[in-house]
Write a protein that binds this DNA or RNA. Structure first.
Lengths: 238, 238
DNA sequence: GTTAAAATAATAGTAATACTATTATGTTTA
DNA sequence: TAAACATAATAGTATTACTATTATTTTAAC
């Protein structure tokens, strides 16, 4: 418990020393270990957000960081791997926030609703990871993340653990669902649907406004919190 | 009502004369109007299903139908437009099934659950459209459809009506939700989530089995029917 | 049945993509 | 100070995603 207190008190500082772990098979050389690696990750986020994943190339990225295409290839085999890296980092970061924010909550229903909040909320800048712009990264996740697994190689890459963080996050939410509603028979599907569905609703509110209720006033979180409360039959009085 | 009876009696025959309407801006020349056009559509489904959308090219498609790359370009500007065409066709087909199957149901709850069934079920072959393999097309929708709108051009293409059929289908389900639960405040989001979420759960049961409850025994339909019943608080006794 | 029009096929060509390989240059670190 | 390592530059290849032109075949019109 003293440990927990230390975390809470020294949060900002402590976070600076936290590293989001990403499966080593995803990269050829860990970009976190060098200045160039960090610039590659940092600027890939800016560039993918700006021009989209389809138009994004290592040549353009090289130009934007005054480095060479060939140097980027020493970190990532191809742009697909880079996208897998970015999504893994993002889900690792979300998992961290989720664990951190729900750890001290004992009431299962409350815990789950906090988890839903973390996973559905619009992202704000996290100063703990200086070279990563979480707001832009979140936009990339909304627009591009599904392309990382909607491929013919998904089964091989899944076996190699490329999507482990994502699945672990879904599992954590599933556990929370089970804890707050023992008899609910679809905890996995509900958990995976919340994670994926939240991204989809964010996309709809940005591009297909006419088929979502989410907007400036009604948040994606509002929708999913309500959905969970109704589906699991929570008695909440706040 | 006589009209309806005629439809029901002569269903198979009538369907043979039904054409799924697709926005004219999507193609340069309507592929339904020629034999080559139909072969392009037919074989693009086989080829995309086989090698995936990323590896799919007009050159390969040309080779597979013993035609020329340049001839295909006379029907579709590029492979992205072809994908938009296939998804439009698919949602048009689903909309047709949905309207047809729910038309005669008067009880709102029953109607909605039938709609959920149509939209979440695994697809079976429909002999009415000889050149389209609906089972393969359904797999393509699960794996590739989101790539048709997860692009930088989505807003322009949306304005041009590329996704109108999809949005109309979601709207129909939304209307059914509203009819069976007047006070539910998230009818749009629930409707869009069912359509998109069903595809996602199908994907998970095929590739990420560990984070879904859906499998051979528990269908995607089971999950979503239950979700709707719980969320809208249906009193169903069957 | 011939001709004109339209559709299809073949060929060639371009700029960009997605790399690989090699060599050169700069920077650490032992 | 040299060896090791990282980065940058250059060149080259096969493929992609087209466009343009011309040739051939099919169809439809008179």
């Amino acid at each position: 418990m003293l440990f927990l207190k230390a975390i809470i008190l020294g949060m900002k500082h402590l976070l600076q020393n936290i590293r989001i772990g990403v499966n080593e098979k995803i990269f050829l050389k860990d970009p976190e270990t060098t200045a160039l690696g960090k610039r590659i990750v940092e600027n890939s986020i800016l560039l993918i957000d700006e021009i989209g994943f389809e138009s994004f190339t290592f040549k353009k990225l090289g130009a934007s960081i005054n480095s060479n295409e060939s140097s980027i290839y020493r970190y990532f085999e191809n742009k697909h791997k880079l996208l897998v890296y970015l999504t893994s980092w993002y889900w690792g970061w979300k998992e961290y926030q989720l664990v951190f924010a729900t750890n001290s909550i004992s009431k299962p229903e409350e815990k789950l609703l906090k988890a839903v909040e973390i996973v559905t909320q619009t992202v704000e800048k996290d100063e703990s990871f200086s070279h990563i712009n979480e707001i832009m990264l979140n936009r990339i996740i909304i627009n591009e993340a599904s392309k990382s697994y909607l491929t013919k190689e998904v089964d091989v890459e899944n076996k190699d653990g490329y999507f482990a963080v994502y699945k672990r996050l879904v599992n954590r939410i599933k556990d929370m669902i089970t804890e707050s509603a023992q008899d609910y028979p679809f905890a996995f599907s509900l958990a995976s649907m919340i994670v994926d569905g939240a991204l989809h609703q964010h996309f709809l509110k940005d591009h297909f406004k006419s088929i979502t209720d989410c907007n400036n006033k009604v948040s994606v979180q509002d929708y999913f919190s309500d959905l969970v409360v109704r589906t699991l039959n929570f008695k909440i009085d706040e």
